[in-house]
Write a protein that binds this DNA or RNA. Structure first.
Lengths: 223, 223
DNA sequence: ACCTGAACACCGTTCAAGT
DNA sequence: ACCTGAACACCGTTCAAGT
């Protein structure tokens, strides 16, 4: 090991290491895991790298956490915390309430592009349940009968998850999107109708999300 | 190594090993990878295990394939091959055409529960593009204008992907679904509206998929 | 053209031990 | 109560080599 060069300034107690080492805890572990995931993607999260970043030994993590899977679950639910108004403002416009809930949900996941693909495959955490409850209430006060609530919730869930997972994946490989477009345009002979639809060539993801959601809500709305 | 007990019957040339060893090729590699994925899930696919199953050395695989990722891409697209009528039967009922295309797509993915979660995160293979073209044609002949085709395709894609990924995930942990239901019912105090919706308690996934799809098509249909 | 084993730089997690 | 290093049983992939 190299000698610590610390003798020079001895007034203050030795400065903490470059990346400061707060005491280990579930919370800092989760926060650091999210950093790592944001920076390196799903495959970038490694117990060893996580420990490195925290300036601790790998096995220290296992005091606060049972398995690596738990880190994923905790990071995921943490990212889904709802930061909006605690109570949905009582609006007369149920449609825009629902759209707001779902767009906020989508935005939260897009801020952490690894999160959407994880969500449908893991147990529902408290923050996920809160968001589902929020959605259910909005639907319910929109006039959806209890017997139709199940289908309505799942339909919207499916749409939002599919949209966000797809969008987040394309975002990652945004660099070669131009190339993909080129390729797809070139494939127009074999797939003419896709070509006419200009699939992938339109990059107004937000607008497309909103429009499709509108169609779904049209169908769902109690006529 | 144990002695080969082959001397007894020497008429035919020595029988091939228990699990026969066809010559290595891209196709048998992909087929075996699908077997492995079906049996063990995404994390179960390992180059070493794959080689074992094929009775070859690990590195032999790398002659036919560049990286492990390629195996995933090939397995995924292979599973998505469309086996329906080559030309969509000319039906006057555009709605049932579209429903058929999408239900077949969903069914193909549910036969291989690992596939749905993979699809939105990988490049579109030829079989995926074929299915998208099929869908586009059905939409187009249903009267959807070219300018609306993009949104229509993505909306349906999003819905189907979200639904199938979610369904496939719950299928895996079907054993503890009863427990999850119990837990969720117990959480009804904290999430009352979810409780009323009987979320997760209804296990008619196929019906829910069809109903939600109907709503989306209601919204999409040119009024 | 096709297959191979040894080796490298990684993984997650068990365990027995330290404070 | 909290942290640790050594060790085990794995990974994907490079490389130099065999036929």
């Amino acid at each position: 090991m190299t000698a610590k060069r610390s003798g020079a300034r001895s007034k203050r107690p030795p400065v903490q290491e470059p990346t400061s080492q707060p005491p280990l805890s579930r919370d800092v572990i989760v926060a650091t895991a999210i950093e790592l995931l944001d920076a390196q993607g799903v495959d970038g999260l490694t117990m060893r790298r996580l420990a490195d970043r925290l300036g601790s030994g790998v096995m220290s993590l296992y005091w606060h956490v049972d398995k690596k899977e738990d880190v994923f679950d905790l990071a995921l639910d943490s990212v889904l915390e709802y930061r909006g108004p605690p109570q949905l403002v009582e609006s007369q416009d149920w449609r825009s309430d629902i759209v707001h809930v779902l767009e906020d949900w989508r935005a939260s996941m897009l801020r952490h592009p690894w999160s959407a693909a994880l969500l449908p495959r893991r147990a529902l955490g408290p923050n996920t349940l809160s968001r589902l409850e929020l959605l259910s209430k909005a639907l319910s006060s929109a006039g959806v009968a209890d017997t139709d609530l199940n289908v309505a919730i799942w339909s919207l869930w499916n749409y939002v998850m599919g949209a966000t997972i797809t969008r987040a994946s394309f975002d990652v490989s945004d660099a070669d999107r131009a190339a993909a477009q080129q390729r797809l345009q070139h494939l127009s002979e074999r797939y003419p109708t896709i070509g006419r639809s200009r699939l992938l060539l339109d990059d107004d993801w937000d607008g497309a999300f909103r429009k499709g959601l509108g169609f779904l809500l049209d169908g769902l709305s109690p006529s």
